[in-house]
Each structure stands twice: as structure tokens, then as C-alpha cells.
Design a protein around this nucleic acid. Structure first.
Lengths: 202, 202
DNA sequence: GTCTATAAGTTGATAGAC
DNA sequence: GTCTATCAACTTATAGAC
């Protein structure tokens, strides 16, 4: 309560990013102007440049923060590599669904706006994304080695599973027939079927 | 050979659409200007309006033509409903992969630019997309009824399979380890596993 | 910390010459 | 059928007042 001036530096910064997140997700990076973001925040366009050096950095920071959170959350919730591959895959699938359903705007942007990143920023984001994929691929490799998964190509299966799981965000809406946990279970089951040996007990 | 003037109405129209397809796919609808399209075609910006009433129609026509082709090709290549659901699903998956790999730009646009369609245009495209999904869902329903598929929710499984299959376009590049037909087979196998009963013979 | 004013350039679309 | 010229509105980003 020390300050009573018109300054709001600690609050306006996050609001700028929140407004950009919403607007980029809804209309696309290229279609959103800095003036629209400013209007959403309730300031004039020029004031935005106190919080971001430019529009590109706003996009990059949203993507990088999203992937930072994704990788950190994955590390904290993943089963240890000693666990059996089926349980690790089920855990990964549930985690992926619940994490992605919780932040649809950031997921949408991280997907759709890759082509609007400058080359250096694109490379940084791709490296992080690749790290996420590698975690799933290791689960599949371990499962194949243990004889519980039957996969022709672990790289393709990794990308196929991630595409399948991420697809949930295109249709899920709160208040539907199934809750988030139900949907996570349905997808985890499908993911397991996609790669598991048919003669493995359920 | 009747005309030797500078007019090229029969050739310029298709070239405008081809240029828009390439540029929209690469940079996004909102990020591409009519002047860029004109430059790609080799005419001035004003000349484009002989071939499209506006930029929005250019986008909508690309999407509608793509989905028209998709639905027509599906009808002509699909197995009859009398065939067994496993073969029908394998056929659908192979068709989807090969059709989508053959026209990555149109697929990308039909996906990523939905939010840039005006409401009426969006509704028209969604209806067509829904028609495509319904074909797959019928296969799954028939398979469940016949006892060869085990699916908790045919609508979710339909969307999950389509997301998985379409994901091939994010990574496939010509000249890699596997050819298109190989990739189609790998995905068809994964699609079948995703929904097939475990106790069904291979 | 935010505003107003402004720079310098781009946008979609149209009118009229050729 | 295509061009040039043009319009009004918009863009990102900055400078300087308060």
C-alpha cells in the first residue's frame, strides 16, 4: 500500500501478456494490432512498449513460458523410468490431456503461430518441443525393449500419439457429457491401445 | 490460338489461386497482402480483383475446393458398407494419409485459417468437415456393432483418429526414410490398433 | 507510468486510362 | 485484361509532455 500514484507496473505487465494471449489465440498473431491489445488492457498503444520491446517478443515470451511450464510440469509428474512402460504411457497421456485442457489459448498459440516466429525464436521453441517429444519416445522405446509395446517406428508413433492427444483441444468444451478426467482416461486408453501388444493382459 | 492480345483470363485466374495457396500456407492469411499475391503472379494488385471480389473469397474458395475434392475422392475410394469394418478403417486411414500428403498447403490452410473465415463461410466449411468425420464415425459404429471394435465413445475416437492421421503433415518430407505408401501403412496399422478389440486376430 | 502526437510505411479496394 | 494512381484507414514503433 506504499504507492497511490497512477502507476501500475507490477499489474500492467501481466495484463498485457494476458490480453495478447487471448487476442492472439482468437484472431491470430498477424491479425491482432498493438492497438487492440492496448484497448483490451485499457491503456494507449504507446504504453505497451514499457512492457515489451516489440510485438514479436510478446509472441515469443508467451510460447517460451508455455513450454517452460509444460516441461517443468512433466518432470514433476512423470513416473520414474523404473516403472513399467504401460503405466508410464498412461501417466504421460493423462498428464498431456489435463495440462493442455487447462490452457487452451497457450496451446493454440504454441501450435499455430510457429510460422510467425523469427528464425532464432523458432529454433528455440522447436528445441523445447523436441525435448517434450523425446520423453514420450523414451517411454515407447523402453516398452518395445520390454516386449510390451509393438511399434514399427517409435518416432512416428511418438508424433502420432502427441497429435492424437493434442487434438482434444479442438473439440472439448466445459460442461459437456464428459468431464476432463473422463476425457483424459478415454484418451489414455486409446493411446495405450495404439502401441500396446495385443497379447498383453489389460 | 485465336487471341494474341495481352489478355490471359483463363490462365491468370488459376495462377492467382495457386499463389494465394502457397502464400497463405507459408505465412498465414492475415500476414499476406494482396500486393504480395499480385507480385507472385506477376501482375499489379488491382488486376487481382478481376478474379476475386475480395481477399476473403480467395480464402474461402481455396478451402471449399479442398473439401469438395476431399469428399469426392473419399466417396470414390471408400469400401462399400458391406465390407468388414477393419478393412474399411484401414482403407479410410490409407486414403486420408495419401490424400493429405498430396496437398499439404491446402490441408494446412483448411486447418489453420478457420478463424479467419467470416461466420457464414465458417459454417459452410464446418458442415463439409463434419460430413467427412461422419464417414469415419459410421465405420467405427459398424465395427462396434459387429463386435470387432472396442471404443468407449465413437465421436471421440473419430476425432482422435483424424487428429492422429492428419498429424502426418507436420513432419513428413519427401525423400526421407519411408515413402508415402509406407507411412500410410504404418498409420493404418496404428489406427486399427487404436480401436480394434485386443482378441481379434490380426 | 501513461498520455498525445507523430513518423514512415502498409493495407484492401476502386477509378479510369490504355 | 492490365496498368497506374489514388483513397482512407490502418500498421509498428518512437519522442516528448505531464
Amino acid at each position: 500500500m506504499a504507492r497511490k500514484t497512477g502507476s501500475h507496473s507490477e499489474i500492467t505487465g501481466p495484463r498485457v501478456r494476458a490480453a495478447a494471449l487471448q487476442l492472439f489465440a482468437r484472431h491470430g498473431y498477424a491479425a491482432v494490432s498493438m492497438r487492440q491489445i492496448a484497448a483490451e488492457v485499457g491503456v494507449q498503444a504507446g504504453a505497451l512498449y514499457l512492457y515489451t520491446p516489440d510485438k514479436q517478443s510478446l509472441l515469443f515470451d508467451l510460447m517460451r513460458d508455455h513450454l517452460d511450464e509444460l516441461l517443468a510440469a512433466l518432470q514433476s509428474e512423470l513416473l520414474p523410468t523404473e516403472a513399467n512402460p504401460r503405466d508410464r504411457l498412461i501417466g504421460f497421456a493423462r498428464f498431456h490431456i489435463l495440462f493442455h485442457l487447462a490452457r487452451p489459448e497457450a496451446v493454440f498459440i504454441a501450435y499455430m503461430e510457429l510460422r510467425n516466429l523469427e528464425p532464432n525464436n523458432f529454433a528455440a521453441i522447436e528445441t523445447m518441443r523436441r525435448g517434450y517429444e523425446d520423453v514420450l519416445e523414451l517411454i515407447l522405446r523402453d516398452g518395445v525393449a520390454a516386449g510390451v509395446f509393438a511399434v514399427q517406428d517409435t518416432k512416428i508413433a511418438t508424433l502420432a500419439l502427441i497429435a492424437m492427444l493434442t487434438g482434444v483441444n479442438t473439440w472439448f468444451r466445459e460442461g459437456g457429457r464428459l468431464g476432463r478426467a473422463d476425457v483424459a482416461d478415454v484418451y489414455a486408453d486409446m493411446a495405450l491401445r495404439t502401441v500396446a501388444c495385443k497379447n498383453t493382459a489389460d
